[in-house]
Design a protein around this nucleic acid. Structure first.
Lengths: 340, 340
DNA sequence: CTGAAAGCGCTAACAG
DNA sequence: CTGTTAGCGCTTTCAG
């Protein structure tokens, strides 16, 4: 074990100890298969004995690649990204890539720009799982895959995209409610790409059933507070509402508060569906029926797309939409009193 | 704007364009103050015009420092870390340090060791805001500060520590309940360092009031499910309970479910206090009274301690305990029926 | 498979 | 303040 006095062992020390050349050590490090098992083992033994750790900095400088991909998420507060990240890493790790995560909110608070940070870090690629301010992505000269949202409204939307089908998800949620006999179903939306798709899915399902959509929250965000406000607006405008499709899980929780304030309960009086199937939805006390967008798979697929892009920079854009499913819990039930 | 064809501009190009020496550019980059304003501006202009981005890899290799600190958190699902991280960055950023975050759960899932990852990355220091498995921190040869927990049970617990005073926090929570007239107050705990301190605070407050502590969950974890289980155990063993001090906010939410299952409501029948004052506690639908450990300040203080340590590696260990406060919402109220 | 050699882009030390 | 000079530890040729 090296101490502060003995400088860290270098590739050269390893080579010497293993009785091989520096180049061979480098080959082993990079996982080449043109190395005989015997020598490979010798090198690995030497690495172990010396406590050698390759210097990423040196490797990056020499190879001009960092083997790091930047992952841009919206907000650490919204646990949606956790599974996405797990999926990403499950394929990035074996490929010897490291994920570096930054969130838009945090960076907004500290004044630094996350994309700038990634670029300064010289990441090899970017996974965009958020909607950065317009222009933020302009100077980006590395491959980019959009994960979890269908588009970004970028000037050059030729990027690879992997996402859950939000429109279908909202449609699923709405149909579930229709199947339970609900007719007066409202939707809580917010300004965001996925939000727009979810809204569209809701509207389509309603029209297909010959019903008039009722949407609130268009001008707001997608937080719990926004969900609360949108639900208040909905319930005040249409007190006869018997079911609510929320833009996401936290908005659904906001809606629950609005209902309770009005002396209503879910699902007895009003059914509520969330979206994302976040941990929140699974809490027993909430038991939210929610649309599962399979973000872990989205993450894995996004990583695969990224690796493919790194190999074939000029391949045509890859667009992949995963099919969502509905997780039914206790916040939805049959209409009780259709006339309320 | 450089294209793929033109290689990225280097410090040399900047120097040439600004009509100064390479060294001067390096000085400007590192924020030296021995540079005349005129030249500094010239350099900054050249940087801007060329779209120059310093290569971290080269800087790291040459200086043998990455200006990166690894932040080890427990679980991205528990939003406790978000404010901690914001606090950390608020002082790390101005000092030109970058935070690199990894969580124990994620890495456990993908099989990689986060500390190894940090070491491979050659971070300059580590912020430990989690309780890694014993032995995980053994090979660490960089400065380390423990944030948000009072100890780690390490062999060499000489590390710097910055944390909220969990014991005092739980004491605060318990006293709040006592002040409301509660006497039959139970505590939900779990295996964790902070958990042990919180438990101790609760027990001390109970004893001070001449009451017998009632604790459940010692064998479990600290998740929502664990909180639910512990609350069930508590309520079954002591149906007369009128108030619960939960180990953290998610456990409190689990307790809420256990109460409802038994036909009890908070705060009408049983008061519930959480800990961490996480976003969860603030949701209108939950409105959890919770202990605020001021994790943002903890983060900032931890970063300051780290910077100090980097400057003075041999200074005596720094231990700082921040005073928590109680955020009263709607999950606690006066005892209704002391005899239930 | 080996060994030599040439950098990658920057920092740091020093003499001007 | 400038300019020069060495490297930092690794990857990548390329000829053996």
């Amino acid at each position: 074990m090296p101490t502060d006095a003995n400088p860290r062992p270098t590739i050269y020390d390893v080579a010497q100890r293993a009785g091989v050349s520096k180049s061979l050590v480098s080959l082993v490090l990079r996982g080449s298969d043109h190395v005989s098992p015997a020598r490979r083992e010798a090198v690995e033994a030497a690495i172990e004995e010396l406590g050698y750790r390759p210097s990423r900095a040196a490797a990056a400088l020499a190879s001009q690649r960092t083997r790091t991909v930047g992952v841009l998420i919206d907000d650490f507060h919204n646990p949606w990204f956790v599974e996405l990240l797990a999926g990403l890493r499950s394929v990035l790790d074996p490929a010897r890539y490291t994920a570096s995560v930054a969130d838009l909110q945090l960076e907004a608070a500290t004044g630094s720009n996350p994309v700038e940070g990634f670029l300064a870090q010289h990441v090899d690629a970017l996974v965009v799982a958020a909607e950065p301010a317009p222009g933020t992505l302009d100077g980006v000269d590395v491959p980019m895959v959009v994960a979890g949202m269908r588009e970004l409204g970028l000037p050059d939307d030729g990027a690879d995209v992997v996402a859950g089908d939000d429109e279908l998800g909202a449609r699923l949620a709405t149909k579930h409610l229709l199947g339970l006999g609900h007719r007066r179903i409202g939707h809580l939306t917010g300004r965001s790409g996925p939000g727009a798709h979810r809204r569209r899915g809701y509207e389509a399902a309603m029209r297909d059933a010959g019903l008039e959509p009722a949407v609130t929250g268009e001008a707001g965000g997608t937080s719990e507070a926004d969900g609360y406000a949108a639900a208040c607006a909905l319930l005040d405008a249409r007190p006869e509402t018997t079911a609510i499709v929320a833009g996401n899980d936290v908005m659904a929780v906001g809606a629950l508060a609005a209902l309770r304030e009005r002396g209503l309960a879910a699902p007895a009086d009003v059914s509520v569906v969330g979206h994302d199937d976040s941990p929140l939805a699974a809490y027993r006390f909430l038991g939210l029926t929610s649309v599962d967008g399979h973000s872990r798979e989205v993450g894995a697929a996004a990583a695969r797309a990224l690796l493919a892009r790194l190999d074939h920079p000029d391949a045509p854009p890859h667009r992949e939409l995963l099919e969502p499913s509905l997780v039914v819990r206790h916040s939805t039930g049959p209409v009780r009193d259709a006339s309320r």
